[in-house]
């Protein structure tokens, strides 16, 4: 072992012991800043109320009131947590006020779209690595399309579909599929191309057929890339679905919760929906991450 490698080993052991503490510290700092922000941003309103009622507030009274307003400018963390708990556990899950119900509407469209987009992306990628004409035709546009804000036109797609009488899960799933399609396509093409010339020559020297080459070399070596892009794709699919739920008229889904909250000034509701969406996103990405570790470990590729 060289000294550099040893220094690396030294650093690694130090890293694994202190991983949680820094994250907790930063999280605590964020919550503290959040509370301070809530007090600061809501103080004007509380002071105005007090002035109108001709009462003078002590500082502690002011702070207490800023953190329990019904429609605060910035709700305090505990208010959001309460709103989230109320939405998740305080309702029957079939209720229209249940975040579980709205979350399920969003999740089902996300998953449907993700499945379609991923399947299409993988199939097209396989076609592209095996057909030069397809590669040269499609790839430049696929890459260029990543610079176009496709997500921004999602609400419009919904409205157009609605004008044709198509509503519900399908249009949102289309957007989710479209958004997850490109990351998977680009990542998969890159992954299928990772085997270098030497590995391909080796396959060639064994007289492997194209199918054997694909199943035994290209596909396994593309999996790390596939999983990396699946994580991007599922997050994109979820964002797409939520944005697809924004147009006026939508009544179901986390996006609709955001919108109705913004119409009626229900800030706690907005934040609760936002956190529900964030947790859903984290859950989905972690799920793919777990799947990735499991698969790569079975293939002996895990690091």
């Amino acid at each position: 072992m060289t000294s550099a490698a040893m220094a690396g080993a030294k650093r690694r052991t130090g890293r694994s012991t202190g991983r949680i503490l820094p994250i907790l510290t930063v999280l605590l700092a964020i919550i503290a800043i959040w509370y301070a922000g809530a007090v600061w941003m809501n103080a004007t309103w509380v002071r105005d109320q007090a002035a109108r009622a001709d009462t003078v507030l002590t500082t502690s009274e002011l702070v207490r009131q800023t953190l329990m307003l019904e429609r605060p400018v910035l709700p305090a963390p505990h208010q959001v947590a309460a709103g989230l708990w109320e939405g998740v556990a305080g309702q029957k899950i079939t209720s229209k006020r249940s975040l579980v119900w709205h979350g399920w509407i969003t999740l089902s469209a996300t998953l449907a779209g993700f499945a379609i987009g991923t399947a299409a992306g993988i199939l097209l990628a396989v076609g592209i690595v095996h057909n030069r004409a397809m590669d040269q035709s499609v790839m430049p546009w696929a890459v260029a399309s990543q610079t176009v804000p496709i997500l921004a036109i999602a609400p419009m797609v919904i409205v157009v579909f609605a004008s044709m009488g198509v509503t519900g899960l399908l249009p949102k799933a289309m957007i989710a599929a479209w958004l997850s399609f490109f990351p998977v396509l680009v990542g998969m093409v890159k992954g299928l191309r990772t085997p270098d010339a030497m590995q391909l020559d080796l396959m060639h020297s064994w007289h492997a057929s194209r199918a054997q080459q694909f199943w035994r070399l290209r596909l396994p070596s593309s999996l790390p890339y596939l999983f990396a892009s699946l994580k991007v794709a599922i997050a994109a699919a979820l964002v797409g679905t939520i944005v697809g739920e924004l147009p006026a008229g939508a009544t179901a889904g986390l996006g609709a919760r955001l919108l109705s909250g913004s119409y009626y000034g229900q800030t706690v509701q907005i934040w609760a929906a936002l956190f529900a969406a964030a947790m859903l996103a984290a859950l989905l990405v972690m799920l793919i991450g777990a799947l990735e570790r499991l698969t790569l470990r079975r293939m002996g590729l895990a690091r």
């Binding site: 072992m1 000294s3 040893m6 220094a7 080993a9 030294k10 690694r12 052991t13």
Partner: peptide
């Protein structure tokens, strides 16, 4: 001496 995960290494 470096301390590593596998015990000290006498460089």
């Amino acid at each position: 001496t470096f301390s590593t995960a596998d015990g000290p290494v006498h460089a």
